[in-house]
């Protein structure tokens, strides 16, 4: 059974269809990169996985649990799925430690000391232990995004969703974030990553999904995708972002 199964989902904003019959899956331990031009629905698709975006048709099944089922305990499911956002979304009124412990204590019910210990371990891992007492506003974009990754990891997630994690960063900060993600991928974390960073895809992705106008146009193993993309649209996209 796949960790994440997306089955024929469609979504509309009023009359406008943003997703059309999308089907794919992410196996345990697999790293899947989702790419495509802006407005192609890739961010919407990844937000459907933990039901941050509702959808009108189809099913999303995470670890055997249907997210759209009204009887599903969504908060509980979401607490097991880590998510990293384009704009970090750290909580500005908490310190870095506070950001990393709040959900551990309030959602998982972990004792405070244990939460702090876990937070420190993960901050150390992303190289930011020295900043634990600071507020998010005092850190650079790259540092904030690494904190956001650490925050998600504090919950011991069964898989991680990344929604354009480097798109809002200055170029010189992109690598420090990607390095953390590469390490995570190498440790066997199940990851679904919306990104334009093709270098990252080449390095660690198992599969690449290419979306255009709300449809999954290409869903192929990495070698195949970069070697011989089948669709014309994907070929065009690759030629544009790889040659500059």
């Amino acid at each position: 059974m796949a960790m994440i199964e997306i089955r024929n989902i469609s979504k509309w904003y009023g009359d406008f269809q943003v997703l059309t019959d999308c089907t794919t899956q992410v196996e345990k331990g697999e790293v899947v990169v989702v790419c495509g031009p802006s407005g192609s629905g890739k961010s919407t698709l990844i937000k459907c996985v933990n039901a941050l975006e509702p959808f009108q048709q189809g099913d999303v099944i995470v670890d055997g649990i249907a997210v759209a089922n009204p009887r599903t305990n969504l908060p509980k499911l979401r607490s097991r799925v880590g998510m990293v956002f384009q704009h970090f979304e750290l909580f500005p009124h908490f310190t870095i430690t506070g950001n990393l412990t709040i959900a551990q204590t309030k959602v998982l019910g972990r004792p405070k000391e244990e939460s702090i210990e876990k937070a420190m371990k993960l901050l150390d891992r992303v190289g930011l232990k020295a900043h634990a007492h600071k507020f998010p506003g005092q850190l650079s974009g790259g540092q904030q995004q690494r904190v956001a990754i650490a925050r998600a990891l504090c919950m011991d997630p069964i898989c991680m969703l990344f929604d354009e994690p480097t798109s809002a960063l200055d170029p010189e900060m992109i690598n420090e974030v990607l390095d953390v993600m590469v390490e995570l991928a190498k440790e066997g974390m199940t990851m679904m990553v919306v990104t334009h960073e093709m270098g990252f895809a080449r390095k660690v992705a198992h599969r690449v999904i290419f979306m255009d106008q709300g449809k999954i146009v290409e869903d192929a193993a990495k070698e195949e995708f970069f070697g011989t993309p089948r669709s014309e649209r994907a070929q065009l996209f690759l030629s544009k972002i790889l040659h500059h």
Partner: peptide
């Protein structure tokens, strides 16, 4: 308060009440 803050609360498994009480209302 930025909408992404609510999404971040939810994504961490917080309920509506927790997201409001801990994340949105203080800001």
């Amino acid at each position: 308060v930025a909408k992404g803050q609510v999404a971040a609360g939810y994504a961490l498994g917080m309920s509506y009440a927790q997201t409001m009480r801990l994340i949105v209302l203080p800001q």
